[in-house]
């Protein structure tokens, strides 16, 4: 049964296993849906932050920016609602935003759904201070005037570009 061993060796050598320790260095802290993360993963170095890492990650990593998707159901992770609802902002999330801003790290919300209600993210948007809106979505009228708004192209990679500090135009 040498064939069997040879076949396994051939398959094993072709298995695309990501080498140890080759993860991204954490250019961008991202909080949001897996769907959006997947779509921009190739263009930007995302560390997909869940509540598990909110307190610990900033002690070890210095990202270029923090991006939080302003998401509504059904793609919203179950824990997202706990982090930011209307006027309340989770203490750990608030601390994360404050810590990063104190280190001159950009923070921004990603307005990816035309049906979003700005009231639902009132405290979060205020804390982040910036909102990125991909085409063809318009700027919601309900956004507070002091919030800085960026528009980007409609392709997923445009979001990646803007998160890396490129390809943005302020409205």
């Amino acid at each position: 049964m040498g064939t069997f061993t040879t076949k396994l060796a051939a398959l094993a050598s072709s298995l695309p296993v990501t080498p140890y320790g080759t993860g991204f260095p954490g250019d961008i802290f991202y909080i949001g849906s897996q769907r959006l993360a997947d779509s921009i993963q190739n263009r930007a170095h995302l560390i997909h932050i869940t509540p598990r890492d909110i307190k610990i990650a900033p002690r070890f990593l210095r990202p270029r920016c923090l991006a939080i998707e302003l998401i509504t159901l059904p793609t919203r992770p179950s824990w997202f609602k706990r982090l930011a609802t209307g006027k309340t902002l989770d203490r750990d999330l608030s601390s994360l935003i404050g810590t990063l801003q104190a280190s001159n790290v950009e923070t921004m919300g990603l307005w990816t759904n035309p049906n979003n209600n700005a009231k639902a993210f009132e405290s979060l948007i205020a804390a982040l201070g910036q909102v990125v809106i991909p085409e063809p979505l318009d700027t919601p009228q309900t956004l507070p005037p002091e919030v800085k708004v960026f528009h980007v192209g409609s392709e997923p990679y445009h979001l990646g570009e803007v998160l890396l500090g490129r390809d943005r135009h302020c409205s």
Binding site: F4, L8, A9, L11, A12, P16
Partner: peptide, 19 residues
């Protein structure tokens, strides 16, 4: 998937004879 890949690789690497 990663775990399956790693374990198959180890099996192939360490067992020149799978019998």
């Amino acid at each position: 998937p990663r775990e399956a890949q790693l374990k198959l690789r180890r099996l192939a690497r360490d067992n020149p004879d799978l019998e």
